[in-house]
Structures are given as structure tokens and as C-alpha cells.
Design a protein around this nucleic acid. Structure first.
Length: 562
RNA sequence: GCGCCUGUAGCUCAGUUGGAUAGAGCAUCGGAUUUCUAAUCCGGCGGUCGCGUGUUCGAAUCACGCCAGGCGUGCCA
């Protein structure tokens, strides 16, 4: 059943065959025109200097789509409009209702995709700056997997760098074991800040810091063991946050993993004259930017560009991906442009490298979100507050529910609200963080979608039916409208994957909820006589399944009551 | 200086890559509950798509020039 062709594919193929060019099939701007419109005719008419309306008429008469839609009509400057036949929609939606994938086929061209996201720094708490990368990357991974692609997720954590000189001194001389036991990252952060302050007061200390760092880099056993402990403690903390968010990774190869490869990478790049010496540093100059990608400093140290190139090569050798996705903030655009250009010069065959970048999260004052004291907002505390606020709402609306159930609802709604707020935004724009908006029961929010799901589910509790059978019939206009939207789930997911834009999925789900509401207001379900009752129950079931699946692909849980 | 990004209703944001009369939510005004969860739904009001010039059958979308804001820009990541 998953192999069935969608309306958009059938119509596109027919138009392209007749036209000899892309159909450019889009949903109609206004439903009075129909369901889909082909815009490709006008483009070709222009190229070949034909009258667009005449060409559209000619193409329209050649199409053999009687099973799928009403006779196509030509309108405006040369649009061909298609209105799906009720019987076709009913048959498709009946199939979808029997399909565990709700009619979404597996992609015909399977890809191997590596996704690099989240990437927090060791010994520092995760903060708001990490949510967008973590949530976006996880969502893209889920969507690509559902579409049948092979996805490798890799958390490229910052586990190497000059900060370890400070951390090792702090660990050796100022460590508070009890604090470390309670909250390792906070204690590590305190140690770092403390030593950093000491260095400012007593510049002579910097020599000690540097000495510890050099010892670590040279493989000193004691320092290496401390470094390893700091990483283990940090990873343990990260995992707690990831568990709350429902995010997981196939691999966590941190930056340190690539250390042994860096000297070889630089040597190879120099040997091929891709990297050259300039002002005592080893640089790669690429088109489009005057500043080079520096891969080795004058003092011999390597930089993150070096690590990124080593990482890229390792991933190619290990997984042979068709595509590598880097989910980071907008500020790294130049860096990745340089890395990608350098890789294209260096490696014989480079896959599709995509920098999926996103804007900042702002406070209500329009400036980057900070605490009152000007610090980064810790992710754990943000999630705590989300759950607390959600619990207050649930308790107010539904005080009779047992506490344990209210807590579960608060967790699912609170975490869902934070994620949904982020994913429903176009990722390229900055967005203003607002508790009131993300927890609102109206509008394009997680609580609204979760509640919409609960409302559908309650029908089944009342109806008390186990199995559903028979064809779905679409009698009322709102049933037909809902069914057509259900059939657009496939094209929505493909668009999300093609452009790395989860907000198209949230928009789809919000529309789905709206169309369900119209149906729900106009079409009694339980009180209807058979066979309408079974038909409508199946439509409800399919809507709920797609809501649940859609939210799951966003990384958001559903509950059965609110 | 150069580069990238952003500018759409009072506010927060969509707008599927050049398509038909630019859409939501909030706010505001009005309506719906003997009926499947009213934590809901329906309707009204609200726009010089930052400004200007161009490209063409057609521009919020593309080009060029301004204006405003953010970010980046040779030895952090």
C-alpha cells in the first residue's frame, strides 16, 4: 500500500510527459480554482515564444487523468487547474488508513546521510544556544529515517582545547569532591572560572596552565586520566539532558578523536599545494573570501578548521555518505563555506555538504536571551521551568486529575512546547522566546496540537470500537477537504527533507488540526448510522495517527488525555 | 572597508524557491455550548510586503542602488 502513487506524482508525470518539461505542480492558491495547479506551461511558453493559454489548452486536452481528477481547466495567464475526484481521494485515504505508514512511501532513491548536531562543550553546561541545533538535528534525522534513508547521527562534542590547562590545574588543586558528586558540570565550570580569575590576578600562573596543557598534549598519564574523567562526567550530564529531550546519537566522536590525524591532514594538504604558508601560519585560500581558512597556527597548533577537514575525511572513509548535514548557528556560515570549498579541492569525491544554519533565540527585549544577571540560560533550568509552567496550566484546567498523571502531562506538554516553538519557526530567522506564546492553547503551538490529538482520541474512548472496516466515504465537504489534506502528508515530509525545514511540518499539522475541527463541528461521528459511522471513525483514526506521527517526527510526545 | 543574514497587519511570525485577491496566532470587536473534551470553534477589523529603480505576461520572492538592525571578517570554537 505504501507503494501507491500520490496524486501529485501522477498529475506531475502526466503533465511532464505532455509538456516535455517540469510541471511545477503546486497546491492552488485559492481552493475555488481546484486542488493543484501546473505552473510549468507558462515558463515553457515564454521560452518557446508560444501563447501560454493556447499551449495550456493543448496540454490540458492531452492529459489522461480521468481516474484521478475532473477534466483539467485552464485559467488566468496559462494555469492548468486540477480538481481531484472524490472517488479517487476516498480510495487513497482508505488505503492510507490501512497502511502503518499512512500512505507515505519509502524514498525511491535511498541516501546515506550523516547529521552532525548539538555539539556541546565538555565541562560547560548546555544552554539555550544548544537547543536549536539539538532539536533541529534530531527532527531532520527522524524525518529522513522515516522516509527510508540511512541516517548516521554524530555528536561532535568539544572535548579538546586550551581550556583543559585551566581545568587540570583546578582539578588538581581546588577540586571539591562533594560538589563534583552533586553536580559535576557546575563544579567543573566553577573550577574553570576560578583558575581563569586567578590567572588574571597572578599572570605568572599562566605558565603553569600552559605547562599542564602541554603535558596533556604530550600524553602525560596523570593529566590524560583527569581529562578522561572530565569527559566522562560531562557526557553523563549531557545524556541526562538528551534523555529528557528524547534525543539520541549513533556516535559521539568528539574533537579529540581526530587529534592523531591532524598532522597528516596538514601534510597532505601542503603536499598537494592546497594549503600554503602565509604569515607563518598554514592557510587555505578559497574563492569568495579574502580571509583564509587557517589550519595550523604560527606556533604549530591546529584549529577547528583542521579538525573539521579531518572529520570530513574520516566520515567519507567510514560511512561513504551521499550527504553530510551540519546543524549550527548562522555565525558559522563563512567557516563552513571555507571548509566545503577546501574539501572540494582536496578530496576526489565530495558528497552533498549542507550547512543547515539557524538564527538566535532572543529575549522579549529583542536581545539574545540571557538571565537577569547576564549569563547564558542553562538548558536544564529552561526545561524545568517549561514543565513547571505546564504543570500550573494543567492543574488549573484539570485539578481533578491525579498528581502523577498531571506530572506526566506537564512533562510532555512543557518539553513539547519548547521544541515546537523552535521547530515551527523558519530556522533562518531569529526568534523571540515567549513562555506565554509557546504554552498557549490557541495558535500554532505544541499544547494546541497535543490537545487536538486528545480530542480525536476521546472519540474512540466513547465509541468503544476495536476494529474498523469498510471503505471511507467522503460525503460532507469538510470530510473531503480533510481527506485531501491527509493525502498531502507525503509531499510535506519530502519538502521538509529537501529543504531542511521542519516548520513546514508544523504548518501542515496545524492546518490538519484546523480541517479536523471543521469536520468535527459539521459531522457527527458516534451518533451517525452505519456505514457513515465507520467511515468517519476511520477518518478520525487516520487523522490522529498522522498527528501522532507528525509530532513524533518533530520529537514531540503525545498523551491520551489532558 | 568587505562579506553574510534580516526588514511582511499594533505585537509575534508564515508565505514550498517568479504565479491568480499576501496568510495565521495574539490584541481588539461580535457570535456559537440540551450535542463526540469550551484547554474548543465561527465571523468582523486590521497591509505602500523598509524605500527607490529595473527585469516580464506576472515580483513579498530575482537584479542594482539606498535606509535600518544583527552577525562575521588571518592565528577561539
Amino acid at each position: 500500500m505504501s507503494s501507491m502513487q500520490s496524486a501529485i506524482e501522477i498529475i506531475s508525470a502526466a503533465v511532464e510527459h505532455a509538456l516535455g518539461a517540469p510541471a511545477l505542480l503546486r497546491p492552488c492558491a485559492d481552493p475555488q480554482f481546484g486542488d493543484y495547479q501546473a505552473n510549468g506551461v507558462m515558463a515553457i511558453a515564454k521560452q518557446t515564444k508560444q501563447n501560454p493559454r493556447a499551449l495550456a489548452e493543448k496540454i490540458a486536452t492531452q492529459l489522461q487523468l480521468a481516474d484521478v481528477c475532473e477534466p483539467p481547466t485552464v485559467a488566468g495567464a496559462g494555469f492548468i487547474n486540477f480538481k481531484l475526484r472524490r472517488e479517487f481521494v476516498a480510495a487513497q485515504v482508505t488505503d492510507a488508513a490501512r497502511d502503518p505508514r499512512h500512505g507515505v512511501p519509502s524514498a525511491s532513491k535511498l541516501k546515506i546521510v550523516v547529521i552532525d548536531f548539538s555539539s556541546p562543550n565538555v565541562a560547560k553546561p548546555m544552554h539555550v544556544g544548544h537547543i536549536r541545533s539539538t532539536i533541529l538535528g534530531d527532527c531532520l534525522a527522524r524525518v529522513l529515517k522515516f522516509l527510508g534513508h540511512r541516517v548516521v547521527t554524530d555528536n561532535h562534542i568539544g572535548d579538546w582545547g586550551t581550556q583543559f590547562g585551566m581545568l587540570i590545574i583546578g582539578w588538581k588543586k581546588h577540586r571539591d569532591d562533594a560538589a563534583l558528586q552533586r553536580d559535576a558540570i557546575t563544579e567543573l565550570e566553577r573550577l574553570y572560572k576560578f583558575v581563569n580569575n586567578q590567572c588574571e590576578l597572578h599572570p605568572a600562573l599562566r605558565e603553569d596552565v600552559k605547562a599542564e596543557l602541554v603535558k596533556l598534549q604530550q600524553g602525560d598519564a596523570e593529566n590524560h586520566a583527569i581529562w578522561q574523567q572530565i569527559i566522562d562526567l560531562s557526557k553523563h550530564e549531557f545524556d541526562r539532558t538528551y534523555a529528557r529531550l528524547g534525543v539520541s546519537f549513533d556516535h559521539t566522536f568528539g574533537e579529540s578523536f581526530y587529534n592523531p590525524m591532524l598532522a597528516g591532514v596538514v601534510a597532505d594538504l601542503r603536499a598537494h599545494d592546497i594549503a600554503i604558508e602565509s604569515d607563518d601560519a598554514i592557510c587555505i585560500f578559497v574563492e569568495g573570501s579574502k580571509a583564509p581558512l587557517i589550519i595550523q597556527k604560527a606556533d604549530g597548533a591546529f584549529l577547528y578548521g583542521t579538525t573539521d577537514l579531518a572529520t570530513l575525511k574520516y566520515r567519507l572513509d567510514k560511512w561513504h555518505p551521499d550527504e553530510i548535514v551540519y546543524v549550527t548557528d548562522a555565525r558559522q556560515q563563512l567557516h563552513f563555506k571555507q571548509v566545503f570549498a577546501a574539501a572540494a579541492k582536496w578530496l576526489p569525491k565530495v558528497p552533498d555538504l549542507r550547512h543547515v544554519w539557524f538564527g538566535s533565540i532572543l529575549g522579549e527585549d529583542g536581545k539574545p536571551l540571557k538571565t537577569r544577571s547576564g549569563e547564558n540560560v542553562k538548558l536544564g533550568e529552561l526545561l524545568d521551568e517549561a514543565e513547571e509552567r505546564a504543570l500550573a496550566v494543567v492543574t488549573e484546567k484539570n485539578p481533578d486529575l491525579p498528581e502523577q498523571i498531571r506530572n506526566t502531562i506537564a512533562r510532555v506538554v512543557g518539553i513539547g512546547a519548547v521544541k515546537y516553538a523552535d521547530l515551527s519557526q523558519n530556522r533562518t530567522t531569529d526568534y523571540v522566546f515567549s513562555w506565554a506564546k509557546m504554552l498557549a492553547m490557541n495558535g500554532n503551538t505544541a499544547p494546541y496540537m497535543q490537545y487536538a490529538y486528545v480530542r480525536v482520541q476521546s472519540i474512540f474512548r466513547k465509541a468503544g470500537v476495536a476494529t474498523l472496516d469498510g471503505p471511507i466515504a467522503l460525503e460532507h465537504p469538510t470530510e473531503l477537504d480533510l481527506a485531501k489534506h491527509i493525502l498531502r502528508f507525503t509531499e510535506t515530509l519530502q519538502a521538509v527533507a529537501d529543504d531542511d525545514k521542519p516548520n513546514w511540518l508544523t504548518a501542515y499539522l496545524y492546518d490538519l488540526a484546523g480541517k479536523f475541527s471543521a469536520f468535527y463541528d459539521n459531522c457527527p461521528v458516534i451518533q451517525s448510522a452505519e456505514p457513515t459511522r465507520s467511515s468517519r471513525l476511520q477518518l478520525c483514526r487516520l487523522t490522529a495517527d498522522i498527528m501522532k506521527r507528525g509530532l513524533n517526527l518533530l520529537g514531540i510526545e503525545t498523551i491520551e488525555q489532558m
